[in-house]
């Protein structure tokens, strides 16, 4: 799967004059809101996400002042669950994105540094990841290992690692071939210095842009797996598992799934917009 990026034209073209395109402002505002909610979940959630209110089951939004977004089958407050789900989904997406970037970049740098056998092994691993849709691979691992939050995050962290590996390898090789890296190496610098002080800072912007492209994909994967009941396990809740749970009540109480679904869509949309905008500004070479 190639990077999923928004069309450049949608965001920047025709709006060149303005420094901050409307969509970008919206994306930043929305993501800040999501981050704020995730950080302050304990404070702002009106109820615990497991708290039952058996007198108000399946209450539609606005029906009682107690539950502005309604309640589910067990009378749990949808708003509170939504807040905690946002926290969970963001935690997973951040964790997994960082893990993927770390693993992928390290392997890519190793491949470029040692070349030869190491590089062939890394490339074979890249082939391997490309040979399986990640969803299938993830499902297989979950079947074999069972599920826990840590495992789940690490598993999603494997998503897109090969993209970082490929990018890092290419950039390191080209940096090392003619340019500044070769120059610093022949000054007598150790590999640590060459990579740590020169190469990584130079390729960081490209890698960060790749992270903003992988982040929404991970949110989608997480919610997809959780929707299937194979991701985040009850009593924990995430955006995807809320949708999966709400699906049972699609006819009677669609509000249970509509609000988490909207949050998923808006969040992935915002990160994509932001990533695309960053890419335009930081790294015109990344297509």
């Amino acid at each position: 799967m190639s990077g999923i990026a928004l069309p450049v034209g949608l965001i920047s073209e025709g709006k060149r004059r303005r420094r901050w395109p409307v969509l970008v402002v919206f994306a930043i505002a929305w993501l800040s809101l999501m981050l704020g909610i995730a950080l302050l979940a304990d404070v702002i959630a009106p109820y615990a996400y497991t708290a039952l209110d058996l007198r108000n089951r399946l209450a539609p939004p606005g029906a009682t002042m107690l539950h502005p977004l309604g309640t589910d089958e067990l009378g749990r407050d949808v708003l509170s669950r939504l807040i905690f789900s946002i926290r969970m989904s963001l935690l997973i997406a951040f964790g997994a994105t960082i893990i993927g970037a770390l693993i992928g970049t390290s392997l890519g740098v190793l491949a470029a540094h040692f070349r030869g056998l190491v590089e062939q092994v890394v490339l074979a691993l890249v082939d391997f990841s490309a040979s399986l849709p990640f969803l299938i691979l993830a499902l297989a691992v979950l079947a074999f290992f069972g599920n826990s939050l840590t495992l789940f995050i690490c598993l999603l962290g494997l998503h897109a690692w090969e993209r970082y590996a490929r990018i890092a390898r290419g950039l390191v090789i080209s940096a090392g071939a003619q340019g500044y890296a070769a120059a610093v190496r022949q000054l007598g610098a150790s590999p640590w210095r060459v990579y740590g002080r020169h190469v990584l800072p130079n390729i960081a912007s490209t890698l960060i842009v790749s992270m903003t492209l992988a982040f929404p994909e991970i949110i989608l994967l997480e919610s997809g797996l959780s929707f299937l009941g194979l991701g985040v396990q009850p009593p924990e809740t995430s955006l995807g598992s809320m949708v999966g749970y709400g699906r049972e009540y699609l006819t009677r109480a669609p509000w249970i799934l509509l609000s988490p679904a909207a949050v998923i869509v808006l969040t992935t949309f915002s990160v994509s917009v932001l990533g695309d905008w960053l890419r335009d500004r930081l790294d015109p070479t990344l297509s």
């Binding site: 999923i4 928004l6 069309p7 034209g9 949608l10 929404p216 989608l220 919610s223 997809g224 929707f227 995807g240 949708v243 999966g244 699906r247 699609l250 006819t251 669609p254 799934l257 679904a261 998923i264 869509v265 992935t268 949309f269 994509s272």
Partner: peptide, 28 residues
């Protein structure tokens, strides 16, 4: 612009959400 808008939507709306929305509209 229309095509790109749809393309963005196609990427950001996960298939389970789209599927459920279609069910909600066309079936329910």
């Amino acid at each position: 612009r229309a095509v790109m808008m749809l393309a963005v939507a196609g990427f950001t709306v996960p298939s389970f959400v789209l599927g459920l929305l279609l069910v909600l509209v066309f079936a329910v």
